[in-house]
C-alpha cells in the first residue's frame, strides 16, 4: 500500500529488524508515512511500537533495515533527523520541578529559536495552560502534563512529531483533550506518527493505520480499507458493522496461530 500522493513519504521504514538478546521484537517492519498525514502504529503491549519510535528518534540502533525521516537516514544523518522531529509521550518526559513555562523556555533555548519567552507564552495560550504556566509541573493533572508535552514538541516547528502512546494512563476527559491537540497538529500540516494500543484512538485520529504484530506490519491501510478486510456485514435481525476492534482481534488471532508467517491470510477464516 504505497502513499497515493506524488510526494516522497516523510517517514520511510524498510525491513527494520531489532532483537533484544534472543527476543526478536521487529522482524522486518515496512511502512511509509505521507507528508501531513496522521499514521497510527497499532499493536498490543510489547508488540514493538516503542522500539520502532526509538529507532526513528535516533535513540536506538536497528539490527537491520533502513529508516529515513524527512529524507535523512536515522543512522548516517542522525543530527539532521533530530532537527526534523520532536518526540513526546510515554518515554519522553517533562521536567516536574520546573514550571510549565520554564519547560517550554528550556526546549525553546535548546532548539535555538528566537525569543523563547514569547514562544512559551504563545504555546501556553494555545494549549489553555496560560493560568498554569507559572506552576510547577508536578502539580499538573495528567491531561495538562500531556498537553504541555505536546506543546513542547511544537517548538521549532519540526515537520514530524512522534507521539508514543500519548494517552496511556489518562482519564477519558484528558484523552479527549489530547486527541483535540493531535487534531490541531494535523490541521497545521504536521506529520504525526502515533503509537497506541487503543483501537478507538487510531480510529479517531489516524488517516492510515498500521497494525504491528509478531514483529511485522501485518496490515496497513485506511480505516475503511481495514474494515473491508472482513466479510461485509450480514443482514440478519440487526446490521452490525465490524468495528476496528473486530478487525484487530481477527487479524492478530489469525497470525499468532501460524507463527506470524501469514501476512496475507487476514480474515480468511469464514
Amino acid at each position: 500500500m504505497e502513499t497515493t500522493s506524488g510526494q516522497a513519504p516523510v517517514i520511510r521504514v524498510q525491513g527494520l529488524e531489532k532483537s533484544y538478546k534472543k527476543l526478536e521484537v521487529l522482524r522486518g517492519v515496512d511502512f511509509d508515512v505521507a507528508r501531513g498525514s496522521v499514521f497510527a502504529l497499532l499493536g498490543s503491549n510489547g508488540a514493538g511500537k516503542t522500539t520502532v519510535v526509538r529507532i526513528l528518534a535516533t535513540l536506538l540502533k536497528a539490527d537491520g533495515g533502513t529508516a529515513t525521516v524527512n529524507g535523512f537516514d536515522v543512522v548516517t544523518q542522525a543530527a539532521d533527523v533530530r532537527e526534523s522531529f520532536s518526540l513526546t509521550g510515554q518515554f519522553a518526559a517533562v521536567d516536574e520541578i520546573l514550571t510549565g513555562r520554564e519547560n517550554l523556555v528550556l526546549v525553546a533555548k535548546l532548539r535555538h529559536v528566537k525569543d523563547p519567552g514569547a514562544i512559551a507564552d504563545g504555546l501556553l495560550d494555545r494549549f489553555s495552560l496560560a493560568d498554569a504556566g507559572g506552576r510547577k509541573v508536578s502539580e499538573y493533572s495528567g491531561g495538562m502534563r500531556r498537553r504541555l508535552d505536546i506543546a513542547m514538541s511544537l517548538i521549532g516547528n519540526p515537520p514530524v512529531i512522534f507521539l508514543d502512546e500519548p494517552t496511556t494512563g489518562l482519564d477519558p476527559q484528558a484523552r479527549l483533550e489530547v486527541w483535540q491537540a493531535v487534531r490541531e497538529l494535523a490541521a497545521h500540516g504536521t506529520t504525526v506518527l502515533l503509537t497506541t494500543q487503543y483501537l478507538d484512538e487510531a480510529e479517531q485520529l489516524a488517516d492510515r493505520i498500521g497494525i504491528l504484530h509478531g514483529g511485522r506490519i501485518i496490515v496497513n491501510g485506511t480505516l475503511a480499507e481495514l474494515k473491508a478486510l472482513l466479510p461485509p456485514a450480514k443482514v440478519e435481525y440487526v446490521e452490525k458493522q465490524p468495528t476496528l476492534e473486530d478487525v484487530f482481534l481477527a487479524l492478530v488471532g489469525d497470525t499468532s496461530k501460524d507463527g506470524g508467517a501469514g501476512d496475507t491470510s487476514v480474515g480468511a477464516k469464514e
Partner: peptide, 13 residues
C-alpha cells in the same frame, strides 16, 4: 528514569 534524558537526546543539541 523519568525520560527527560531521552527527550534531550532526541533533540538537535
Amino acid at each position: 528514569k523519568g525520560g527527560i534524558f531521552e527527550r534531550f537526546q532526541s533533540m538537535p543539541i
